[in-house]
Design a protein around this nucleic acid. Structure first.
Lengths: 343, 343
DNA sequence: TAAAAAAATGTGTACGTACACACAAATTTA
DNA sequence: TAAATTTGTGTGTACGTACACATTTTTTTA
């Protein structure tokens, strides 16, 4: 049975006191050449690893983390993200972290700025947020960097420097959508439409990167297809969609947002068959997926994104554990069968 | 900023000593009715949560965990599993766990029994293993249960009682394969073959459950297909496969093991096109997937299975954290595009 | 009612680390 | 060479929990 090496063991081997060992480890000087040498040798020889438990027990500051995410009440896409956060809060309940969650309205950028400014005033140790609005996020991020507050994002990635990010490769996810669709294509009858449905142009970067990825796939693909693109952001989604479908005869759809069900519903109303590939495991999307009216969904794993990013942040503060600056989650393909294993 | 509640706080509020609080928490008696009441009230009122760091720091036993997994040198499918284990070992390096890994030859059941018997003799606190051989696993499991050693499995599930299990729903994964294939089927030309390729009948349960799931899908499916099944376990895989393909005219394949590339290779040699759906992200499978000679792979996430099961075990011992007895990982669908996000 | 026994309660120490402080050794200065 | 300084080194205490042991209080017995 392996015994764990402590500073005491090092002290004994190097024939000095634990105080000296401690000074060497934290290199805060006041150590003679000779002692330094001996301690460093012992450190290496015994392969010393500090006990993170004892370390963080001693370190009795309570870290404050503020989280800024879209209100799940306004857009149910954010519900799993909230769950992921709550899961981590429970997990670290007994530790020295104080995590507070703040919500903004995903349809109003001022809401984001307001809540963001408010929570920054309390000078937390770290801020985790979803940079839904490009400009406002950059403002927030600049403030955070200036104040030396640790910053982290998930879902989308800001242009500015951020200390940690968890997300998906959106360009590649567009390519995945293209590949999935390609298996159904028939050069003589298929007409492809890319549909962006988002209430307030929030996900501009998101949608654009997915579209680029999608199109890039067909550039290297044997048969060429005309690809029609439609951006829908108002309330009369149905009439706009109807018009789009009828005017171009589109029958194959790649929907870049979680509102995929809107296309499936419109096709249902029109009593038309079509191929629909879109995003996210919303209740309504799953319903159409199960009924065979959506062929595939790409899972952006909001729950996992939220929990992984929060966890990374917590462990970085608590245990000085280092995570890669950018963590990309796999792009998960969901059909009517494996969806059951995701619930 | 929230202050964490300690037994000291409880003692102060209940107006007793920390010793009394401690006795209440661990209910080892010797506490008067009155004191018990007061302490319990304080405990509830302040919502006390023990600090797991301090707790496990104090608890200075070193837990021993023995792991019994197939040798990745004999079958490269187990390489990621080994990596997942190593990852967790590194993560908990500084903690009071002593994890030792032992390998058995996946083609020889005696090897499993032998190594299993050897490691059980050291009476570890927990044993994590892959129950590749049904009978031998049950023997091992019975010994573990008798000796009161914590048992855990992953990959396949033994019939006998096991304290913890991480795996995938194999029946459902068969259905997922069926669904993926169904999108390519043409009632007039398609002939479906289920192929089990395994060197030594190890994965009997695995393969059977997948086959059942696969077939169940087509029972409720509109068009009926003849489904041919072939089990290949010898070395002359190619000739057997060749014969199978030619004699039935099979052109759509569901391969239930990681040897999926064998079918793709045979088709390549025959210069035939076919639909191939199989399992696992082996180097060779990925090659054929990228070349379009395998349409989909189902990812069994051996790395994740190994790391999750080991992690659960470690945290159960170290922090008394409770995990669900059975954890099922999602069934992940891989095509030529999203495979990049898995590497 | 005093002594003995039992029950209840409190105190001290350890886990491994971090840091303040006291002390000892080596230098510098007078 | 003694005193003053600088540098190096060791000791003690705290973090929060767990448990052994000492002490106090209550109950039982003679």
């Amino acid at each position: 049975m392996k015994k764990k090496i402590t500073i005491k063991d090092i002290a004994k081997v190097a024939n000095v006191s634990i105080g000296t060992v401690d000074r060497v480890i934290h290199n805060r000087g006041k150590v003679s050449e000779k002692a330094l040498q001996k301690v460093n040798d012992a450190l290496k020889e015994l392969d010393y690893k500090a006990n993170p438990l004892a370390r963080s027990l001693k370190n009795n500051v309570v870290y404050a983390i503020s989280i800024l995410v879209p209100d799940p009440q306004k857009d149910s896409y954010w519900l799993p993200c909230q769950q992921g956060i709550m899961e981590i809060i429970t997990e670290y309940e007994a530790f020295d972290v104080d995590i507070s969650v703040h919500y903004f309205d995903p349809s109003e950028s001022e809401s984001f700025s307001q809540v963001g400014a408010r929570l920054i005033r309390k000078s937390p140790d770290a801020v985790l947020f979803v940079p839904l609005f490009e400009r406002e996020s950059d403002v927030l991020l600049r403030k955070l960097n200036k104040k030396g507050i640790l910053s982290a994002t998930f879902n989308s990635m800001p242009r500015n420097h951020v200390d940690q990010h968890v997300g998906q490769d959106l360009y590649l996810s567009g390519r995945v959508g293209a590949k999935l669709i390609s298996d159904f294509l028939d050069p003589s009858t298929s007409k492809i439409g890319i549909v962006h449905i988002d209430e307030a142009f929030n996900n501009a970067i998101h949608m654009q990167q997915k579209e680029e990825g999608f199109k890039s796939f067909y550039e290297t693909y044997a048969a060429k297809y005309d690809i029609f693109t439609k951006t829908i952001n108002t309330d009369n989604i149905h009439s706009t969609l109807l018009d789009f479908i009828e005017s171009h005869g589109v029958n194959v759809f790649f929907v870049t947002t979680s509102k995929t069900y809107e296309v499936a519903r419109t096709l249902e109303l029109l009593n038309k068959n079509g191929i629909v590939v879109g995003y996210d495991l919303l209740q309504e999307n799953i319903k159409y997926l199960t009924e065979g009216k959506i062929q595939f969904l790409i899972h952006q794993a909001p729950r996992m994104q939220a929990s992984l990013s929060l966890k990374s942040l917590v462990e970085k503060l608590l245990f000085k554990k280092e995570y890669p600056k950018k963590q990309f989650l796999p792009i998960e393909i969901i059909n009517s069968e494996n969806v059951k294993s995701y619930l």
